[in-house]
Write a protein that binds this DNA or RNA. Structure first.
Length: 858
RNA sequence: GCCUGGGUGGCGGAACUGGUAGACGCAAGGGACUUAAAAUCCCUUGGGGCUGAGUCCCCGUGCGGGUUCGAUUCCCGCCCCAGGCACCA
């Protein structure tokens, strides 16, 4: 009987479905285990990245279930977003239609992969039953001041016709349209106050031992906490005071000028009516037209313009000039800096360019610095000079004292500054959750009453061909009555960033059918936190940081008991493949290449580097085609076998063949000996065995131990699969040789074969369930307890000891396990080959490593 | 520039706490079976050396040093690749 993956897989998928095998409830006596993979955006087809992510998750889910946990393994759809709008415009369809069609198609594909999801908990974020609760949460955040509106300079993507959070800008371009430069616009936007939670989120980075260190490091750097001071510089001939943030108040006596960021609103007031006004405003306009990214880049020349105004250095009482400079960031600190050219390289370059004064205030212990001859800023530690009462003090020591002095004198205050900014969530897009706010000429900004939720996104309207949102043009949507005064009012037409939906979907999985509120506190308390979260490394900051923020907000709103959403995090690497390029036709899809030549023109193709699979490079493999050809089990196995999950996976068609061959081998191993195996009683370790069988029995239990450890401790499925391959190889060898004791042979073989099938079942569940049934079992393997190795079976009579002379391997001997160190040493010295190497050289030292190695130093 | 990973055969990778480098798989070559092919099975496969082809010798984990009886593993310096961040005051 041939292995027919198509038939086997259809049979078992139908059976799992019929039995509702993966449905879970909260009333199980078993301990809960919440396993989650990042939900997909319904783009139309699953890609290799999905397959890899969800296969890793499925193995863990099935393994944990077999280990006796009540496993929640849900799946849903991150269903709002711009691609739906773009596709809708292109294909003359509706985003809702496009999205729902994609969901159906991808659901079929996911089911075809045999993933063990509880589909009863499926949710789509574009469903009003989902986003109504998101709107409610927004209102509660608004009540608490966690959602607010402010004018900001925002990143604007022309293609999206939408604002991008700073975090969504990549290389100065939109993170979705990497060829679209981001420009700066002033706009009124809604923000969520993630900064209120920055300290807690940062602090708890230390309490996430189940997260990869590098993700935590990235998040810590993103939050960017620094201690410093805000120092007040009074403006000459004015009541105004300029506040600057600095972490280097120790250099305050050396501050010889001050710089504003071009965006700073104070600048316009300061220059009003001055002869410098025109030049300053011109400079600001020119500078702002450059994107922040480029403007502040390392290689950009530091430029600025004098405002014509001066302020007082609060400690030296000197009048110092005020500049506007391109390198000062408006969003960091106060948007203005004190410039200390002697001890900051940027300030130094600026001062040299505009011939501004320098004053050294820190000197190295062993020499003096000269302002006239310095060629760069002195950044090291040293002793304070020219610093009034602080002269002679080491600069780091004086940091605190100077801050206290400033506070005492009313010149400033100590402060903690964060790099992270509040989360801008306003999007001028259609396909998103409406922000539940109404603007009334009389009452101002009025929240939509809870009883009026959800504010439903209207579906029956025409999209605008240029890509902008139709909502501001749809009077039936924006026209409304003010909930306070009843007069005509206008509804907010911005929708929310889709990261809002993905910041709490994992909570909703606990109670997707709950209608009395966003979350059923009891059920959420049962499931949360997620025990294991699995997804791509590309979400290391944004999604994961927002989710950590949202979890705390929901906790403070009383919906959640936990602070951290994800106890353990596994970030998997990318799926890569080499590119293929035709000199004439450019990048080619794999199916456009025939025997190393372009299918279109016959020219020889050039094989390029191995890079992340992407449509633009055309180095993509469609999982569906592979599943059709080899079956889901083969695809699953290859994804796991080719590399450990955290590493990038290099795609190899040959490797897939290899996985398919192995599954065929397992199939034949069982089917070729089915009668004998079924007739045998599984060996229980209770009888004496001849050496070959004892070895197989030992291998069986070694494999159990190895596979369990590989999955449990480090998710190294590649080595787990290797271990089972070794076991299968050894079974094959034993069965190939003529057996001495038939009965015992089949008995031990049955134990080995069944073990291999059970251990492989999380990886290739269809094949294993089929073989399991053939072997005479009725239940699906997911309800079979994961095996435990028998310590007794691992024991051997002899062991290999490596013999070295001066650290080089010269011989190997088998010794009885019972031998002590002294006896092993004696056995080593008795070895002929070793003796040849020692010869008559005097033995200086003998090192015996417990049960492994003897090293003779001569 | 900074931060974080990584560099091991023809290829993907293994070696878990400093103890046999290259498990397992792929590819390649040879052989068996077959009219033939596919499939399957068996053997060889890091490089080099050798009147005694041996459970032989030398070299070998990016490069150069070091610690150690012993280093892919630890330390110092350097090179390269990938990802992230960047005038952070």
């Amino acid at each position: 009987m041939k292995y027919e993956p198509g038939q086997v897989e259809a049979k078992w998928q139908a059976r799992w479905d019929d039995e509702g095998l993966f449905r879970v409830t909260e009333d199980s006596p078993k301990e809960k285990y919440y396993l989650l993979e990042m939900f997909p955006y319904p783009s139309g087809k699953i890609h290799m990245g999905h397959v890899r992510n969800y296969t890793i998750g499925d193995v863990v889910a099935r393994y944990k279930r077999m280990k006796g946990y009540n496993v929640l393994h849900p799946m849903g759809w991150d269903a709002f977003g711009m691609p739906a709008e773009n596709a809708a415009i292109e294909n003359n369809t509706h985003p809702a239609r496009w999205t729902m069609d994609n969901i159906s198609a991808m659901k079929v594909q996911l089911k075809r992969m045999g993933f063990s999801y509880d589909w009863d908990r499926e949710l789509a974020t574009c469903d009003p039953e989902y986003y109504r609760w998101e709107q409610l949460i927004f209102l509660k955040m608004y009540e608490r001041g966690l959602a607010y509106k402010k004018k900001t300079h925002v990143n604007w993507c022309e293609k999206c016709q939408s604002v991008l959070a700073n975090e969504q800008v990549e290389n100065g371009c939109c993170w979705r349209h990497t060829d679209q430069e981001v420009s700066i616009r002033e706009m009124d936007s809604w923000f969520l106050k993630i900064t209120d939670y920055a300290e807690e989120i940062l602090d708890h980075c230390d309490k996430l031992p189940g997260w990869p260190q590098r993700v935590l490091t990235m998040q810590r750097n993103w939050i960017g906490k620094s201690h410093g001071a805000i120092i007040r510089f009074p403006v000459v001939d004015s009541d105004e005071v300029i506040e600057v943030f600095t972490t280097r108040q120790d250099t305050l006596y050396g501050a010889t000028f001050l710089c504003f960021a071009p965006e700073h609103p104070m600048v316009r007031d300061l220059v009003r009516g001055l002869p410098e006004e025109e030049e300053v405003l011109g400079f600001i306009e020119r500078t702002l037209r450059m994107e922040t990214h480029l403007r502040t880049a390392d290689f950009t020349v530091k430029e600025g313009v004098f405002t014509g105004r001066y302020c007082l250095n609060p400690v030296t009482r000197e009048e110092i000039p005020i500049y506007v400079a391109n390198f000062v960031l408006f969003d960091y600190g106060t948007g203005a800096i004190m410039a200390v050219p002697t001890h900051d390289q940027r300030d130094f370059e600026f001062a040299k360019k505009y011939d501004l004064p320098l004053r050294v205030v820190i000197k190295p212990e062993d020499r003096d610095l000269n302002e006239e001859t310095m060629t760069e800023a002195y950044l090291e530690e040293g002793i304070l000079v020219n610093s009034g009462p602080f002269n002679g003090r080491p600069n780091l020591e004086a940091l605190q004292d100077i801050a206290e002095y400033l506070e005492a004198e009313g010149m400033g205050r100590r402060t903690v500054n964060y790099r992270i900014r509040d989360w801008g969530i306003s999007r001028q897009r259609y396909w998103g959750a409406p922000i539940p706010i109404i603007y009334c000429d009389h009452c101002g900004t009025v929240p939509v009453p809870e009883s009026d939720l959800p504010v439903v996104l209207p579906l029956d309207l025409d999209l605008r061909p240029n890509g902008g949102s139709p909502l501001p043009y749809e009077s039936s949507f924006y026209e409304c009555d003010c909930p306070r005064c009843g007069r005509k009012a206008r509804r907010e037409t911005d929708t929310m960033d889709t990261f809002v939906e993905s910041s709490w979907y994992f909570d909703r999985y606990a109670c997707p059918d709950y209608h009395q509120g966003p979350l059923d506190v009891k059920r959420v308390e049962y499931w949360m936190p997620v025990d294991q979260y699995i997804g791509g490394i590309e979400h290391a900051i944004l999604h994961l940081l927002y989710s950590r923020f949202y979890t705390r907000v929901l906790r403070d709103l009383g919906y959640l008991k936990v602070s951290e959403p994800f106890t353990n995090l596994l970030t998997q690497g990318m799926v890569c493949k080499e590119t293929q390029e035709c000199p004439e036709h450019g990048y080619l899809f794999p199916e456009e290449v025939r025997k190393g030549r372009c299918a279109l023109c016959g020219k020889e193709i050039v094989t390029g580097n191995t890079v992340k699979m992407s449509k633009s490079k055309r180095n993509v493999v469609d999982p569906q085609a592979l599943v059709d050809r080899y079956g889901a089990d083969t695809v699953r196995m290859f994804c796991l076998f080719a590399a450990p999950p955290e590493r990038d996976l290099e795609w190899s068609d040959r490797g897939v063949e290899g996985s398919y061959r192995f599954l065929n081998r397992v199939w034949r191993l069982v089917m070729d000996h089915l009668e004998e195996l079924r007739g045998a009683v599984t060996y229980q370790g209770d009888e004496d065995l001849p050496p070959a069988l004892r070895s197989l029995h030992r291998k069986t239990h070694q494999t159990i131990k190895k596979v369990t450890e590989d999955i449990e401790a480090r998710f190294h499925f590649n080595t787990a699969v290797s271990a089972v391959m070794e076991l299968v190889n050894e079974i094959g060898q034993v069965l190939a040789e003529p057996a001495q004791e038939e009965g015992k042979t089949w008995s031990v073989a049955r134990e080995a074969v069944e073990t291999a099938v059970v251990l492989l079942s999380p990886v290739v569940p269809h094949l294993c369930d089929e073989l399991w049934e053939k072997l005479g079992h009725n239940d699906c393997l997911i309800d079979f307890p994961w095996p435990e190795h028998r310590e007794e079976a691992l024991k051997a009579e002899t062991r290999l000891v490596v013999l070295q002379v001066n650290g080089k391997v010269r011989s190997r001997i088998e010794v009885p396990v019972s031998l002590g160190e002294k006896e092993i040493e004696a056995a080593a010295l008795a070895d002929e080959r070793l003796a040849r190497w020692i010869a008559d050289k005097p033995i200086k030292k003998i090192i015996v490593v417990r049960k492994k190695l003897v090293n003779v130093v001569v």
